[in-house]
Design a protein around this nucleic acid. Structure first.
Lengths: 245, 245
DNA sequence: AGTATTGAAATAATCGATTATTTGTCAAGC
DNA sequence: GCTTGACAAATAATCGATTATTTCAATACT
């Protein structure tokens, strides 16, 4: 199950990992590399939601054989980013208003639960990781003009949310949350160039983090829930504007 | 000491288990059929938890080529029944006390939430399906002496729990619950030959179903939560007895 | 006209063989 | 005696070719 959750991936991996003499653990096989590339391609919208994935074309595009291609695609199924049907191949998971709402609802349920558990059993290192992730996130500006900064911000944002709940000691729960975050990020990357004016997302993150390390369960959880909910509402509006059912 | 924990030293199923009609639609691919067979083999304990899956041996056992074998295994990863590591192959997901506890906890969270939603938005057909599933389950006896009745009961039991929450209208949530049920069933199949004397599981199921169709949210959800919790406690005791960490 | 049929093209699934990586063993060196 | 390194066996990953299935369009039929 965690084969797909190798922590840092995508844009994140290139950034750090300057030292590590044995850094090559995790992206060795062609199948794995393909999984990463495809994941990024789907989340970023490069591969259109709902579109069919032609194996032959993909094979040529990526210069690989069928076996690793199928291998990579199979992993994205676990991530909920690809759908599959016998004898009918693969397609990029479609997006919809209903799906966005479900993702948001489940994030409110699961991420908040995971945060509650993290506050209950997380150790000091967990606290430290939160503060670091928060700092790195708040120090990074999203500049819509330069896509690479967007990507970077997304990576840090994702990292922050995962770190928040990383202390819960429940691998399965983390897997679910990771998956939901994947799905959610796709909507944001597609529709949210900037946050609506009435929000200060940076402050929202800070409040959640403060509450977490202060072990104030109710405060932190409520702030997180609101944060997720607002993001959902925001995305829903954008989605509706674009005319997606 | 009584149960059949002979492990079967890598003896994967030779011939088709002469069990129920698995004929299915003949339009399935080899990969799909393998996924089904392997899933059953893992949940039933035929393939020992934590054991390595040797591709070459499995290939010979099932008389198939590598491609569909990998295909099938890849699907079981989504189900949380198989783990994978680059260049190091596949292994049956291990079981542990911690995992059982997490599965139980998450079932309490997710299944109960899904039931709540189902009661809120489920239609009359959903109600009907529950009553049918309940009836079929209660009409079936578990006879420890005959394994095929166990298998049948397991299928109906699973069907009942899935039907209960099938009205929620949240595909992702159902996917998670389905996955948790898979993991949970593995523990029951392995350790629970009979329920402890102080429980009347049949009545528990009936109460949950009654509450659901009566749209009594609090009653039904609380009964379900207790049902899941009791099962978890029960399994934990059996697991501890067997000396699993 | 509309529906059913058929066969070729497109696409997916599978196979057998080959290549790459890991694991286990044993001897050389310290 | 213990570690290190080289080699061989075991195992996993990948490839190119072949087989099976679906799609689609042209044709025949009612």
């Amino acid at each position: 199950m965690d084969s797909s959750d190798d922590g840092a991936r995508g844009a994140l991996t290139e950034e750090d990992a300057p030292s590590a003499a044995f850094a090559d653990d995790g992206k060795n096989t062609i199948g794995s590399q393909l999984a990463s590339r495809l994941r990024e391609a789907i989340i970023s919208g490069e591969l259109e939601a709902g579109s069919k994935i032609n194996l032959d074309r993909a094979r040529k595009t990526f210069n690989v054989s069928l076996s690793p291609l199928r291998e990579g695609l199979a992993r994205l199924i676990s991530d909920g980013l690809v759908e599959f049907q016998d004898n009918r191949g693969y397609r990029v998971a479609p997006i919809s208003l209903a799906n966005l709402e479900e993702v948001t609802t489940l994030r409110e349920e699961l991420e908040v639960f995971a945060l509650r558990e993290s506050i209950r059993v997380g150790d000091v290192e967990w606290e430290g990781n939160i503060m670091r992730a928060l700092h790195r996130l708040n120090r990074t500006e999203r500049d819509a003009a330069r896509p690479e900064t967007l990507e970077h911000w997304e990576a840090l944002h994702r990292e922050f949310h995962l770190t928040l709940i990383s202390g819960c000691g429940k691998p399965l729960l983390l897997h679910f949350c990771n998956l939901l975050l994947n799905l959610n990020d796709r909507y944001r990357r597609a529709f949210l160039v900037r946050t609506s004016g009435d929000r200060n997302v940076g402050q929202e993150h800070s409040e959640i983090a403060q509450g977490a390390v202060a072990r104030d369960v109710e405060y932190a959880c409520e702030k997180l829930r609101q944060h997720i909910h607002r993001t959902g509402t925001n995305l829903r509006n954008h989605l509706a504007t674009k005319g997606v059912a």
